[in-house]
Design a protein around this nucleic acid. Structure first.
Lengths: 233, 233
DNA sequence: CCTCTGTATATTGTATACAATTACCGTCCG
DNA sequence: CGGACGGTAATTGTATACAATATACAGAGG
């Protein structure tokens, strides 16, 4: 049986759709990842206005954000299209993400407190319960997973990391690997998280970093097996 | 005798001031780093229009870019101010930069070719000559240094890295450490580059990565000694 | 004297009109 | 028939007017 990817979607703050530029961002993003947008597809700003229901000004704001996340790319003549990630770029994204999440875990280990541990245990409890059901509740799993990694990022206390990491956790990979993971894979994610919590409790930054690196790199290899039928190692 | 910092300013593409949003970006950036902008200073968009001489639309584009680079920060109520980097944030920036530049060097080592080696040697020759003058030519040094690191980034062939790294090589540090480096420090940078070239020629990615890490971390420690009078180690 | 609240003011957010670029396509000339 | 040229349509870039929102301040009530 096959499910979905451990790491995903810390960035999208699904709340606060108040600002038009935020709704534009969300809707265009959704269009690219789950809607009719396929890699290489040309998109005019006007088209994006139709998709998001707002005018060009907030659309342009959203576009700039999506460009930073490399979900949209701009041709030499400033025309927009949906990004088409090469295999090498996806591999690179995993590598960079492993480095930065490792670093975040190391910092979090140094700054963790009792309240943080409690919150991490709560979230991971929910994650584990969601997986252990007869048919795993993927949506809840993904949400809990996001919360778990967000908490680590919070305790890393690095504004710079908080700005950099979300851009690496974007969804083209999720889109290409949705429902790819087995129940055992999902359970292993929960166990990784448990070990991370143990490392945090021990304030052992090397341990925390190593577990996090394993966590991400396992996802990387599972991704390879699932999408290309071979292991990159 | 005291001079300036090894790593700096790969990002600013000093050319192509055609678009108003580009001139706004450049002028506001210059204002923050070398003009009247001091950390914590409040800036309205109107004020930024005066500074850059264009209307609010391109100013807002530029502001978003500068926010990503964390030169500008936005308060909870969406008001802008010049970023005020804490010591911890600066340390973090060096740490992240060391990781990513190391990674870039590793990738470049795998992808280097004869033409790239020649270009790197040319650039570093110019850098060394600029330093060896009776009074080192700092401007030329900085330009050559930027070109050198840009070349490595080019040969790393990672669009993602090319987007991430420039945001870490920004200037608040340069501003706070301008003219801080001795002639020996500058010469050592040239020697680091020579060793990097040797590592590239040998296609030894571990060597290249290690040299790059040393290169950045030495700058980090020199920065500490120069600005805080103590070594972080 | 403090706090709360309402209103004026300042600032940011959005829509739209217009300018500048770029691509598209038919035509002309070799 | 192929390629360069030029005109037109499409698209992005900029300015500005207006709307929404947040702050600041004054005055009333406790």
């Amino acid at each position: 049986m096959i499910y979905s990817l451990p790491g995903s979607d810390y960035s999208a703050n699904s709340l606060s759709m108040s600002r038009a530029s935020d709704t534009a961002y969300e809707k265009i993003r959704r269009f690219i990842l789950y809607g009719g947008g396929h890699p290489g597809m040309q998109l005019t700003e006007e088209r994006l206005c139709d998709i998001s229901g707002v005018s060009r000004t907030p659309v342009r704001d959203a576009v700039q954000r999506l460009e930073n996340e490399m979900l949209l790319v701009r041709s030499a003549s400033k025309r927009l299209s949906v990004a088409d990630w090469s295999d090498d770029e996806i591999d690179e994204m995993f590598a960079l993400r492993a480095m930065l999440e490792c670093h975040a875990a190391e910092r979090a280990a140094q700054r963790m407190d009792a309240d943080g541990l409690r919150r991490l245990r709560d979230v991971n409890g929910g994650l584990t319960r969601a997986v252990q059901r007869a048919t795993p509740d993927i949506a809840t799993f993904l949400q809990a997973n996001r919360q778990f990694h967000d908490l680590i990022l919070e305790y890393a206390q690095s504004p710079r990391l908080s700005k950099l990491l979300p851009a690496l956790v974007e969804q083209p990979v999720v889109r290409r690997t949705a429902q790819q993971y087995s129940k055992d894979d999902l359970m292993q994610s929960g166990k990784d998280h448990d070990e991370l919590i143990a490392a945090f409790a021990a304030r052992d930054q090397d341990w925390a970093g190593a577990v996090m690196t394993s966590h991400i790199r396992r996802a990387f290899h599972s991704f390879h097996l699932a999408t290309r039928g071979s292991d990159p190692a």
